[in-house]
Structures are given as structure tokens and as C-alpha cells.
Amino acid sequence: MTEEIIIAGFGGQGVLSMGKILAYSGIMQDQEVSWMPSYGPEMRGGTANVSVILSDDRISSPIINEFDTAIILNQQSMNKFESMVKPGGLLLYDPNGISHHPERKDITIATIEGAKEASSLKNKKTFNMVVMGAFLKIHPIVKMENIHKGLEKSLPKRHHKLIPLNEEAIQVGMEKVKIIQEV
């Protein structure tokens, strides 16, 4: 099994760390992983994206232009990545701030109100975990126990007290994800 994912949004949304937690969770179940960020003169509010690959086999290119899943968190990323989802793939997005909704007919489309759910959890930083939960509901590529280990590995020790909140956010995402179109 190989899952090629792009996560794209604004800097500060937790795009890179969501990718890192997914990658670490993959390692915890003995998979090969790669995490390739867009890097550059980027900052809070600018665009940020990361390609994450989890695979049972050796990963060829960490740099890819076709994805099984695109997780889209702003309009610029929608414009850039909608066309790069493989036919039959998944596009998951937060409709908040999206003015042009996806138009592809050959992919599964799902939404998650990440920002809204995160503020109801009273911690806006859980946004990325809500979104990750939504993704994992549709593509359960990593087990919850491995996500727990992934969180432990990727968060510094001083933040380990936040792991239960993050796991709650993942659960919320799993419950609140809406499939708009299925192929």
C-alpha cells in the first residue's frame, strides 16, 4: 500500500506538523515515509504545503505531482492542487474561506469545518488534528494506537499533556467529516 498525500494551506495552520505526525505514525507501523515541505521565504500567513508519502515499499520520489489525497486548507491551494488529485482519489477541504469549490467529477470530495470545530474545542491549534481525523475517517491508513505513538514522538515532552486534547480533536474530525461526492 502506498498513500501519496499533499497537505496545503496557510503557514501557521499546522500543515507541516500534521504531515510530521502522519509520517511518524507510519514509522510506528513499520512503513517507509517521506515528508517533503515547500520551503522558502515563507512565514505565518503565507502558503505552506507538504507532500507526505506512507508506503509498505521503498519510496521512489518524495517529489510528486499526482496525489491520492489532497488536503486543502485555503483557496490558493485549491487552485493549485485540485487538478493534481489522481482520478478516483480524495480531495478533503475546509470550506471556510473557499470561494471556488472543487469541480472535479472523478474524485471523492469531502469537507470538514476544521476551524469551526477547533474553536468549539476551545483551542484553535487543534485545527490540524480535526482535519487529520477527517482524513483518517475516509482513509484509515494508520491505526489510532500508532497515531498516539506518532504524537508522542513528534511533540516535545513539554507538550505531551496536550496529547489527549489532540486525540479528542481527531475524534471530532472523524465524526464531523462530510462526504459530498463519492466515486
Binding site: 510530521k20 517507509e32 515515509v33 515528508w35
Partner: peptide, 10 residues
């Protein structure tokens, strides 16, 4: 190069 330097792998 920058790609190998910046990316994360196992």
C-alpha cells in the same frame, strides 16, 4: 541539495 537537506525520512 536542498531537497534532500530539507525533507524528512526514516
Amino acid at each position: 541539495d536542498g531537497a534532500i537537506g530539507q525533507m524528512m525520512e526514516k
